[in-house]
Measured scan of single mutants.
Amino acid sequence: SELMNSSKLIRMLEEDGWRLVRVTGSAHHFKHPKKPGLVTVPHPKKDLPIGTVKSIQKSAGL
Rank of each mutant, 00 (worst) to 15 (best):
T40L: 07
T24L: 08
L9N: 01
H29R: 09
V53E: 02
K45E: 10
V39R: 01
L20P: 06
K31M: 13
L48N: 02
E15M: 11
T24M: 09
M12F: 07
H32Q: 00
P36W: 07
E2S: 09
E15V: 08
V41I: 06
L13H: 00
T52H: 07
K45H: 08
T52L: 15
R19Q: 14
T24Q: 09
H32T: 00
T52K: 09
K8L: 12
K35M: 03
H32K: 01
A60F: 01
V21A: 09
T40K: 12
R11T: 14
L62P: 03
S59K: 15
G17P: 00
D16M: 05
A60G: 05
P33T: 07
G37P: 03
F30H: 01
K34Q: 13
G17S: 03
V21C: 08
Q57W: 09
F30W: 02
M4N: 09
I10L: 04
L9K: 01
I50R: 07
L13K: 00
S55C: 13
V53C: 04
E2F: 07
L62K: 04
T24P: 01
E15K: 12
G25N: 13
S1H: 12
P33I: 06
T40Q: 08
H43T: 03
K45P: 05
L13I: 08
G37I: 03
A27S: 13
S55V: 07
A60L: 04
Q57V: 14
E14G: 05
V53I: 11
S55T: 08
N5S: 14
M12A: 08
M4D: 05
H28W: 09
L3G: 14
I56G: 01
G61P: 01
S6R: 03
E15I: 06
L38N: 08
S59F: 06
V39W: 01
K45C: 15
V53K: 02
W18V: 00
M12T: 07
K58L: 13
F30M: 06
L9H: 01
K45A: 08
P42G: 04
S1W: 02
S1E: 15
A27C: 13
P33W: 07
S59W: 05
S6H: 03
L48V: 09
K46W: 09
V41M: 03
L20D: 02
P44V: 04
H28Q: 07
S1P: 10
K54D: 10
V53F: 03
I10P: 00
P42D: 06
I50L: 14
F30C: 01
D16F: 05
L20E: 05
S6G: 04
P49L: 05
R19T: 11
W18R: 00
I10T: 02
L13S: 00
V21W: 10
P36S: 13
M12K: 06
G25C: 11
R22H: 14
L38P: 04
H43Y: 05
I56S: 01
G51P: 07
G51C: 12
P44F: 04
I56D: 01
K58N: 11
L62A: 04
D16H: 07
G61R: 06
S6W: 05
W18H: 00
N5H: 10
G61S: 05
H28I: 06
T52G: 03
K45Y: 07
L3F: 11
L20K: 06
H29G: 07
L48S: 01
